[in-house]
């Protein structure tokens, strides 16, 4: 029963997504609109950030705040896991 409802729900979600997908710009072609941000990153990125790897430039400079929080997510996960499980339960030093 649960599976049936899950299937129903999932099919609904998937159907919505397909609706959206059908309308989206064609894959692999340049987006017909709004490329200004990307253009700027590619043309002026190395000069503005000093990184030729534009992805790194975005990560650590244009969107460095996101990356800080991303690091924090990892930190949070470690903290959460340690809070739940507790570290150092293995104290046996024997090989």
């Amino acid at each position: 029963m649960r599976r049936f409802f899950a299937l129903l729900l999932v099919m609904g979600v998937a159907w919505l997504m397909v609706l959206a997908v059908a309308e989206m710009p064609t894959y692999g072609q340049p987006n017909p609109t709004h490329n200004a941000v990307m253009e700027r990153y590619l043309t002026r990125g190395p000069e503005e950030t000093g990184a030729v790897n534009v992805v790194a430039g975005i990560l650590a400079d244009y969107r460095a705040y996101d990356t800080l929080i991303e690091t924090t997510v990892l930190f949070a996960a470690v903290a959460a896991a340690l809070l739940a499980l507790g570290e150092g339960r293995h104290r046996g030093g024997a090989t």
Binding site: T49, G50, A51, A56, G57, A60, D61, A64, T67, T71, L74, F75, A77, V78, A81, L82, L85, E87, H90
Partner: peptide, 26 residues
């Protein structure tokens, strides 16, 4: 080059390495 980018990357590197290790231990 890249000013802060390198510094940030190093910090992230340390953090990620230690996270991987401690999660594995855990």
């Amino acid at each position: 080059s890249g000013g802060l980018i390198l510094l940030i990357t190093v910090g992230v590197g340390i953090k990620v390495a230690s996270a991987i290790i401690s999660l594995y231990y855990l």
